[in-house]
Amino acid sequence: METFLQQLINGLVQGSVYALVALGYTMVYGILGLINFAHGEVVMIGAMLAISSLNVLLGNGVSPLLALPLCAVIAMLGCMALGYGIERIAYRPLRHAPRLAPLITAIGVSIVLQNLAMMIWGRDYLPFPKFFSNNPHSFGGVIISDIQLLIFVLALTLMGLLLLLVQRTRLGRAMRAVAENQQAALLMGVDINRVISLTFMLGSALAALAGIMVSANYGLAHYYMGFLLGLKAFTAAVLGGIGNLKGAMLGGLVLGLIESLGAGYIGDLSGGFFGSNYQDVFAFFILIAVLVFRPSGLLGERIAERA
């Protein structure tokens, strides 16, 4: 029972990070009908930027309490610029090209960003500076650390704010209008390119925060970390129903739970044949199963193939 609860907590924390990244995939898909496969790399760059700026800030005697939000702002601004640039350079010129074309440029952008990160930050694991105690709190044998608590609360808050933005603001209305009918949105006076850029920037800001969360949680970052994380978050978005915001949130949490509960019990279930290192495989089993049995995902409508 304690293992179960412990895995439940771990799963929710990891899942809330998946959800933040999944939102980036799903927002862009909703508005442009394309999968931004470079999104995982934006998460990685966010983590790298945050760690670098934290090192500089802490090295110059800035208090940790100030350094943490500052590095988050730096990472967010950096990633927003990056997300804007990716759309401008890799996707906008191909807006009317066959659907395969932006997929190929997305992979190209991923490779460029990975190599760029490798050149700047090196091939080794980059440690996340330890400047806080990260106290573990124990509740009846179940342990949750300060960082885990912070991640979970912050991620849920961000998700709530995003929903508010999309449902209640002028920009959110314009985003939904553009997603539904670009030509009609134009006729309302909506600058479509601006709304698309803002959507990429919004998703990238969330990605930056997600990057900080993962690297703080595991204590490290790596130029290759965006690949697996991106793929899993994409899985979460598909699981929830791609294009659907609440779906991405639910999909992220569910994927986190399945992974961590699966990893916790896979040894027992397989009689020790598989160890918890098989955790990553779950995501892809799920991706395949969803694509085969319920391509529209948990909350998605049937996706009509766009011309």
Binding site: R170, R173, E180, A184, M188, V190
Partner: peptide, 15 residues
């Protein structure tokens, strides 16, 4: 906009 409600559609008109 089929997935926006009536008021939201009108507000889009005033965008």
């Amino acid at each position: 906009f089929a997935r926006l409600n009536v008021t939201e559609n009108l507000l889009m008109g005033a965008y």
